[in-house]
Every structure is written in C-alpha cells, then in structure tokens.
Amino acid sequence: MMIMRESIVMKIHYGTAIGAVFLVAIHIMMRMTQDFHESLEYENVIANYEMIGYAILLELILILISVHGFNGLRVILLEMRQGPLYEKGVTYGCIASMIALVAYGSNTIIKAHLGIV
C-alpha cells in the first residue's frame, strides 16, 4: 500500500531540510549570545524554554528534523533491500519512531515552558 507518492515525499524531505537549516542556525546563534558554557546553565536553559517564541522554534525544529531524519533512514533502508512486506515494515516503523520522538520532545518543551519541572 502506498501512503504517499514518492515524489511528494522527496519534496517534503527537501522542504524540511531547508526549514531545519534556517531554524537550527537560529538555535545555534542563541548559544552564541552569551558564553557557550554559561548558555547551557540550568537557569538559562529554563529561561529559553519559558520564552514562547523560542519554545515554538524548538517545537518546529523537533518536527522538521524528525520528519527529515526518519524519512532519510527509510530511504537508506529501502536502498539496501526491497520487498512489499519489508518496505511496509520500514515505512510504518519509521513513522512510528518519528511520532514517538516528537511526542517525547514535545513533552519536554511543553512542560519546561509551563514550568512543570
């Protein structure tokens, strides 16, 4: 069963890559606004999570890289071996892993933003 046309999947793959490059650049530059080690201190990291704009940025990075990363893994695994059952297993396995990672990361972002620590 085909979930989505492969050409559409690759457009999503490239779109998520371009989006992630810009957002990760902002994420890294946030570390450069102060001393690198100082920026990783507990209070500073919590302060970052509490900023709504930064929390949204982190959530977007989480989604974009998860989609791009697990689709990339799917492509690599499909290059190595083919077969209807194998392809279905790889596709659904990657989607499930992606959803699990986004859920875990979102849990951290939402709770840290709301101060539930």
Binding site: V45, I46, L62, S66, G69, G105, N107, T108, K111, V117
Partner: peptide, 14 residues
C-alpha cells in the same frame, strides 16, 4: 538528534 532529545528531556528531572 535522538540522544539530544533524550538528554534535554533531563531538564524535567530538576
């Protein structure tokens, strides 16, 4: 990335 998400999740533990 997976390790980074798990690592940063530690912030919820204090």
């Amino acid at each position: 990335f997976i390790g980074h998400i798990i690592e940063t999740g530690n912030i919820l533990s204090g």
